Simulated scan of single mutants.
Amino acid sequence: MEKEIKAYCQEAAAGFLALADLAPDIRNATEQMIEALRNGGKIMFCGNGGSAADAQHLAAELEGRYLLDRPPLPGMALTVNTSSLTAIGNDYGFEDVFSRQVQAHGRRGDVLVALSTSGNSPNVVKAVTMARDMGVVVVGLTGESGGKMDGLCHVCLKVPSRFTPMIQQMHIAVGHMLCGFVEEALVK
């Protein structure tokens, strides 16, 4: 087991080091988020499973605080209202659980951060499409292929892995960078 532990850690370390190659895209995503917030907009997050948990985590970093004491920033996870999720899922289908919430809450100039390790989750892809149609900026967090989201997002942050646990670990690291840079820019 120790050999496997070391191999896992080495793979994780290599992936995190490779995130540096995404610096221009991370900067672009950060700038989109800062602009939205400065203009009175909000940041919405969505994803399934572990990505749903990451969506909630990152929204909380904005609404509460990341590292700096500051006023709360408008971030919302589209994964938390079980009444909306179950009503929309029951009445329209699971593919619509995020897109209908984007349609209800999104405004031109807002940002949707869409998380999908494959980039192909039908409900996330549908939310991305709805957001784009509404003039909402879309930042995607995917694995290295980008899936369907690669061609749909304004900025698609394709982390360098095809292994779901590694992708999710890197997504939260990228999310922390985004929240940290946004926080710094808006506290100045």
Rank of each mutant, 00 (worst) to 15 (best):
M1Y: 11
Y8E: 11
E11W: 03
G15C: 13
D21V: 07
R27C: 13
R27N: 14
E35Y: 05
M44H: 12
A53G: 08
A55D: 10
L58F: 14
R65G: 08
D69V: 01
R70I: 05
P72V: 04
L73E: 07
N81L: 01
T82C: 13
T82P: 02
S84N: 07
A87S: 15
I88V: 15
N90A: 09
Y92F: 13
Y92G: 12
F94Q: 11
D96G: 09
V97M: 04
F98G: 04
R100S: 11
Q103V: 06
V113W: 11
T117K: 13
A127Q: 01
V128P: 06
V128G: 04
T129M: 11
M130I: 07
M134V: 05
G135C: 01
G135V: 10
G135S: 06
T142M: 11
E144C: 05
G146D: 07
G151C: 03
V155R: 02
V159P: 03
V159A: 01
S161A: 02
R162K: 08
R162S: 10
T164I: 00
I167Q: 04
Q168D: 14
M170K: 06
H171K: 07
H171N: 05
I172A: 14
A173G: 09
G175E: 03
G180F: 13
K188M: 14
